[in-house]
Simulated assay, not measured.
Amino acid sequence: MPTPSPTPLLEVASASVAPWWGVPVIAGGFLILGGLFGFVSNWLLENRKQTRAEAIRWDGDIREYVAEIIDLCRQITLVVLSELAFAAGAEYSIRTVVEALPPDEQKKLLNGEDLDTYARREATDISDESPEQTQWREKRFDLYQQVDKLVASLDLVAPDAIREAARRLRQITADLRTQDTASPPKRKDTAHIDEAVEELITAVRRHLGRAS
């Protein structure tokens, strides 16, 4: 008797049965994917924690450096104002004395110079040699060195906006010393320094996410 051939239904059923190694391979693949996903997730989480910890540490340094820079620049401003006031006072005194002289003696003393030029030159010589100006000058240089060191440290940890604002404050404070000494310094002479301080504070607050 001939052997009956399998029916088409049995052939389909037989073909749909997975090979013996299929289930372990699939299960192992999912296991590997799951482990890889967990590893990547943990790595990203730890990386975020480390980045945040470093940012918090640098933020503390930034706050400290900026606070010291602002304090030192304010000290420099007071020193420079003292220097300018002293020089302006000396110049005013010399001008007053010369103006009180008889015309002939005044002309002989000035020797062709105008009064303003003479008074300023003499006041500069007197100021440069005075103990007060020497003390203020030494203190100003020392404060500048401290500011420069802090600005250099800030360059290592701060974003560009904070670094630029700090350098601008330093430069504006230095420029105050070059102003005209013909009259005592006024409040408006330091207004741009106050603006530079506010600009630096605003840059730090924005970096820390606390801008108002």
Rank of each mutant, 00 (worst) to 15 (best):
residue 102 P to G: 13
residue 141 F to W: 08
residue 184 P to W: 01
residue 10 L to G: 00
residue 122 E to Y: 04
residue 146 Q to S: 15
residue 41 S to G: 05
residue 161 A to K: 09
residue 154 L to I: 04
residue 81 L to A: 09
residue 199 E to R: 03
residue 182 A to C: 01
residue 48 R to M: 13
residue 110 L to C: 01
residue 123 A to R: 00
residue 56 I to V: 14
residue 186 K to A: 09
residue 176 L to P: 03
residue 205 R to I: 03
residue 112 G to S: 08
residue 210 R to N: 14
residue 162 I to Y: 07
residue 20 W to P: 00
residue 149 K to V: 12
residue 19 P to C: 06
residue 160 D to F: 04
residue 133 Q to L: 14
residue 59 D to Y: 03
residue 24 P to V: 03
residue 4 P to K: 12
residue 2 P to G: 06
residue 164 E to Q: 10
residue 88 A to P: 00
residue 16 S to G: 02
residue 98 V to E: 04
residue 184 P to E: 00
residue 138 E to R: 11
residue 117 T to H: 08
residue 205 R to K: 15
residue 212 S to C: 05
residue 203 A to F: 01
residue 201 I to Y: 05
residue 201 I to H: 05
residue 153 S to D: 15
residue 163 R to F: 07
residue 175 D to H: 06
residue 111 N to G: 10
residue 27 A to L: 12
residue 2 P to I: 12
residue 189 D to R: 00
residue 198 E to I: 02
residue 100 A to V: 01
residue 115 L to Y: 01
residue 87 A to K: 06
residue 65 Y to N: 02
residue 136 W to S: 06
residue 101 L to I: 06
residue 69 I to N: 05
residue 182 A to E: 10
residue 30 F to V: 10
residue 159 P to Y: 06
residue 112 G to W: 04
residue 19 P to T: 11
residue 163 R to S: 12
residue 191 A to C: 01
residue 103 P to S: 07
residue 132 E to G: 05
residue 1 M to S: 14
residue 143 L to E: 06
residue 105 E to T: 15
residue 45 L to Q: 12
residue 180 D to W: 09
residue 41 S to I: 06
residue 203 A to C: 04
residue 166 A to R: 06
residue 37 F to V: 11
residue 54 E to Y: 04
residue 195 E to V: 13
residue 3 T to D: 11
residue 15 A to R: 09
residue 22 G to A: 14
residue 95 R to S: 12
residue 158 A to S: 14
residue 166 A to I: 03
residue 22 G to I: 02
residue 37 F to P: 00
residue 116 D to Q: 13
residue 109 L to P: 02
residue 203 A to H: 00
residue 115 L to C: 09
residue 121 R to N: 14
residue 6 P to K: 09
residue 190 T to E: 06
residue 45 L to K: 14
residue 22 G to N: 00
residue 115 L to K: 05
residue 5 S to L: 14
residue 28 G to T: 12
residue 184 P to S: 08
residue 101 L to C: 09
residue 185 P to I: 05
residue 96 T to K: 15
residue 34 G to K: 03
residue 37 F to I: 10
residue 187 R to T: 07
residue 7 T to G: 03
residue 1 M to F: 07
residue 75 Q to W: 02
residue 212 S to T: 12
residue 143 L to M: 11
residue 61 D to W: 04
residue 115 L to M: 12
residue 61 D to M: 13
residue 142 D to H: 10
residue 148 D to W: 09
residue 145 Q to K: 14
residue 150 L to M: 10
residue 186 K to H: 05
residue 9 L to D: 11
residue 79 V to W: 00
residue 115 L to W: 04
residue 72 L to V: 10
residue 3 T to Q: 13
residue 117 T to K: 10
residue 51 T to N: 12
residue 208 L to R: 15
residue 127 S to M: 14
residue 147 V to R: 07
residue 204 V to R: 05
residue 49 K to C: 09
residue 158 A to E: 02
residue 131 P to I: 03
residue 159 P to G: 08
residue 126 I to K: 10
residue 191 A to T: 06
residue 81 L to K: 11
residue 167 R to F: 07
residue 140 R to V: 01
residue 68 E to I: 08
residue 3 T to A: 15
residue 69 I to P: 01
residue 14 S to Q: 11
residue 179 Q to E: 11
residue 46 E to W: 08
residue 122 E to V: 08
residue 40 V to D: 03
residue 90 A to L: 15
residue 140 R to F: 09
residue 29 G to E: 04
residue 173 T to R: 00
